[in-house]
Computed example of a mutant assay.
Amino acid sequence: MGRFSMLEWPVLRQFRSGDYLGRGPAVESARTRNLTSRNETADRVVQSVCPYCAVGCGQRVYVKDEKVIQIEGDTDSPVSRGRLCPKGSASEQLVNAPGRQYQVLYRAPKSTEWQHLDRDTAIEMIAQRFVESRRNGWQERDDKGRLLRRTMGIASLGGATLDNEENYLIKKLFTAAGAIQIENQARI
């Protein structure tokens, strides 16, 4: 940092430059003039949608060296017009969190240790448990002999992070499986 000069005092700069109200470059320090946006160094900008709720706010994802460096609201989005809620504004932390898991973790019943599973094994385990629960909770008829064809062994509680199309497909899947306990967090 250079030596301080009284001529660089903001009030004197205001009067010397004619910026009497102090609303122009006279009140900028040399450090402020040299600042640049961290987004200027981005290699590319990718348009995306916020993952947190079903509103679908538009985001601009700034990428440098194949790493997300910043996420901001997309001003071209008709939904959010460049605005993001606090969670959407912090979604860069979701992407770059040091504790983010990239593998499926499984903890067996009564175990104290987590183990890594490949994705296909995890999906197969879920499918088997789904079918078994459906079978064990199946009700063909009630006490009076009326046809039910339903299961009380499975239920669905959807979340607002899913969009309408995803919730529609989940509703169709669980209805086809015979579940009647289908709810969504957005409706509760």
Score class of each variant (00 low, 15 high):
residue 121 T to H: 09
residue 121 T to L: 07
residue 121 T to S: 11
residue 121 T to P: 14
residue 122 A to P: 15
residue 122 A to M: 10
residue 123 I to F: 09
residue 123 I to G: 10
residue 123 I to D: 01
residue 124 E to Q: 14
residue 124 E to L: 09
residue 124 E to N: 15
residue 124 E to S: 15
residue 124 E to R: 15
residue 125 M to K: 14
residue 125 M to R: 15
residue 125 M to P: 15
residue 125 M to T: 09
residue 126 I to E: 03
residue 126 I to N: 14
residue 128 Q to T: 13
residue 129 R to H: 11
residue 129 R to W: 10
residue 129 R to P: 10
residue 130 F to A: 06
residue 131 V to L: 02
residue 132 E to V: 12
residue 132 E to R: 13
residue 134 R to S: 08
residue 134 R to V: 10
residue 134 R to C: 04
residue 134 R to P: 11
residue 136 N to E: 05
residue 136 N to M: 07
residue 136 N to A: 14
residue 136 N to K: 09
residue 137 G to L: 02
residue 138 W to C: 05
residue 139 Q to T: 15
residue 140 E to D: 12
residue 141 R to F: 12
residue 141 R to A: 10
residue 141 R to V: 08
residue 141 R to L: 00
residue 141 R to I: 07
residue 141 R to T: 12
residue 142 D to C: 01
residue 142 D to R: 03
residue 144 K to R: 02
residue 144 K to Q: 10
residue 144 K to V: 01
residue 144 K to W: 05
residue 145 G to T: 03
residue 146 R to V: 03
residue 146 R to L: 01
residue 146 R to T: 06
residue 146 R to Y: 10
residue 146 R to D: 06
residue 147 L to A: 01
residue 147 L to R: 02
residue 147 L to Y: 06
residue 148 L to S: 02
residue 148 L to Y: 08
residue 149 R to Q: 13
residue 149 R to L: 00
residue 149 R to K: 07
residue 150 R to V: 11
residue 150 R to K: 08
residue 150 R to T: 07
residue 151 T to E: 00
residue 151 T to G: 03
residue 152 M to H: 06
residue 152 M to P: 04
residue 153 G to N: 11
residue 154 I to D: 00
residue 155 A to E: 01
residue 155 A to Y: 02
residue 156 S to K: 01
residue 156 S to Y: 05
residue 157 L to A: 02
residue 157 L to G: 10
residue 158 G to D: 12
residue 158 G to A: 12
residue 158 G to Y: 07
residue 158 G to L: 06
residue 160 A to T: 05
residue 160 A to V: 09
residue 160 A to F: 10
residue 162 L to R: 04
residue 162 L to W: 11
residue 162 L to C: 13
residue 163 D to K: 01
residue 163 D to N: 14
residue 163 D to F: 08
residue 164 N to D: 10
residue 166 E to D: 08
